[in-house]
């Protein structure tokens, strides 16, 4: 227990990296995911196919492999991403965007098809239908699953520890080696993750209550 207190500043450094990884990846993943969800219901078949391929490939590839391709395979094709933080953000954002897209799509599917038909019939364009009618309704039921995706993202940032980023897990490994494998080190790491994820879970619950509406 003392060990966690004594190394508080080291933990804090690792925590800050994990928090930044999570924040940047979340913003990027939400943006890309939203676009992909829109493409999946686009009126053009080719766009739907591209979006579906993107989502299915990334959603079904282990995150470690995404990192592996980006960090160790891409350079062999002449693409040299900078080692460390931003490459990790890119990998996490790519991977998570697929889950965001699925969460948003299921939200959109939850909006009655009559809504979209009615909107089309009064002459709204595809973009307007999405913006003015479908998405405002879809977002309500999408928020809780999206927060689940972000909680998973928070925990997934730990994969970056094996690819030149010293976040919470990397920090924990260093502390563990420096303290002869003391099990309290990892307890401290776990607590740091909970500090991020538990408030997110609570937020999800309260939002769920606030945005709930009768159909």
């Amino acid at each position: 227990m003392d060990l966690i207190v004594d190394n508080a500043s080291t933990y804090l450094d690792g925590f800050a990296v994990t928090a930044r990884l999570t924040a940047y990846s979340a913003v990027a993943a939400l943006a890309v995911g939203l676009v992909m969800a829109a493409l999946r219901i686009a009126p053009l078949r080719s766009l739907r196919v591209v979006a579906a391929a993107y989502v299915e490939v990334l959603r079904n590839t282990p995150l470690t492999l995404v990192f592996f391709f980006m960090v160790l395979v891409a350079p062999q094709f002449g693409i040299l991403p900078p080692l460390g933080f931003w490459t990790a953000v890119a990998c996490l954002a790519l991977y998570t965007s697929a889950f965001v897209a699925e969460a948003v799509r299921s939200g959109i599917n939850g909006v009655g098809v009559g809504q979209a038909e009615a909107a089309r019939s009064i002459g709204l364009t595809f973009g307007q239908v999405l913006r003015e009618v479908v998405l405002p309704q879809a977002v309500r039921s999408t928020v809780p699953p999206l927060i689940n995706v972000l909680i998973a993202l928070t925990k997934n940032t730990s994969v970056a520890a094996g690819f030149a980023v010293v976040e919470l897990v990397g920090t924990g490994r260093r502390l563990s080696t420096a303290n002869a494998g003391d099990p309290w080190v990892l307890v401290g790491v776990a607590v740091c993750y909970l500090v991020i994820t538990i408030p997110m879970g609570l937020l999800a619950t309260s939002l769920e209550r606030r945005v709930a509406f009768a159909r």
Binding site: G162, A164, G170, R174
Partner: peptide, 27 residues
């Protein structure tokens, strides 16, 4: 920039005795 394994004894040694080194940990 020196690559080593995350959480290994060599990494520890570099961090403690060669603070000028930028340690890049991999799996």
């Amino acid at each position: 920039r020196v690559c080593t394994v995350s959480g290994s004894t060599p990494e520890q040694n570099l961090l403690e005795n060669y603070p000028e080194v930028e340690v890049v940990p991999f799996g």
